[in-house]
């Protein structure tokens, strides 16, 4: 295993457990804050004197409000659908393109790689208006496809480049051995290189999924009907009422919009960590 070994328990505490606890604590504190806010009664939220770290009167009212006041369940479904499909599209394209750019010798490799990358450079704050024209031309405004097909514009470049990086870390010789054994170019790619790139595929997938899950501007502009909205748009645009924030439901929405995803990710992360260890050892 890659895990280093340690000497004394004391040394392990200093070099490992203390940093770990610090890191986890700092990372999760804001999260803890969201949890507390989401179960705290409104009256307490506005009390400066109250201890902000816990509440004696927890309530599920805000969760209830979230579902009552908004179409949260529907938004969650939309977000999931959009994120899954656009991630699948981007991974598929990115995997093939990343392999081609990293492994194959052809004249246009360098300029094409740069071009794919450049599309990632133009900020969405500039792109969304002309992109709106494209969306209109295809007649997909206010449908999930408006964002499913536009998200890949920034997901594909990332997936391509990340996977390019992974393909570089896989020794060329492994593939060459297979070819000597009689595998065709494509077979070598599919049977040898792709499986070795699984960690890269998963981390690109996680990245793409999260970006789709979070995306704000395109979803704001291309989706209109309340039943088409995604979680970030729906929660943010309907629960921020001018100068009054609905803190409880806002934070409840943030929690419900992230915990299930974290659980799924943890499964993937474990999976690719073991998969990979096996691959390198084997």
């Amino acid at each position: 295993m890659a895990a280093p070994r340690y000497g004394s328990p004391l040394k392990r505490a200093v070099t490992f457990y203390i940093p770990l606890v610090l890191m986890v604590g700092l990372t999760l504190f804001p999260f803890y804050w969201m949890v507390i806010t989401s179960i705290r009664p409104d009256v307490e939220l506005y009390n400066v004197k109250a201890n902000p770290f816990f509440t004696l009167y927890p309530t599920l009212q805000h969760f209830h409000d979230l579902f009552e006041l908004t179409m949260f369940a529907r938004w969650a479904w939309n977000t999931l659908f959009i994120a899954v499909v656009s991630t699948a599209i981007s991974l598929f394209c990115g995997l093939l393109a990343g392999y081609a750019l990293a492994r194959l010798q052809f004249r246009w490799a360098s300029p094409l790689g740069t071009m794919i990358f450049i599309t990632y450079l133009v900020p969405p704050t500039l792109l969304f208006i002309p992109l709106g024209d494209v969306v209109k031309t295809f007649g997909i405004g206010d449908t999930p496809w408006a964002v499913i097909l536009t998200y890949p514009t920034f997901l594909i470049p990332f997936c391509t480049w990340l996977l390019m990086g992974y393909f570089k870390t896989i020794p060329r010789e492994i593939e060459e051995c297979a070819r000597i054994d009689g595998a065709s170019r494509i077979q070598a790619m599919i049977r040898i290189s792709f499986p070795l790139a699984v960690p890269g595929i998963l981390s690109a997938g996680i990245f793409a999924f999260t970006l789709s899950w979070n995306e704000f501007l395109y979803a704001l502009v291309f989706l209109s009907s309340p039943q088409q909205k995604t979680i970030p748009i729906g929660v943010f645009t309907e629960l921020v009422r001018g100068d009054v924030f609905y803190w409880g439901p806002l934070m409840a929405g943030a929690l419900l919009g992230s915990i299930p995803v974290a659980l799924v990710y943890s499964f993937f992360v474990e999976h690719y960590v073991t998969a990979l260890t096996g691959a390198v050892k084997g």
Binding site: F128, I129, G132, V135, V221, F236, T237, E238, G242
Partner: peptide
């Protein structure tokens, strides 16, 4: 319904497209 700060991009995009 959209919160007031996010109306501008919707309007700009609507007029332009």
């Amino acid at each position: 319904f959209i919160n007031m700060n996010d109306l501008n991009p919707k309007i700009a995009s609507a007029i332009e497209t």
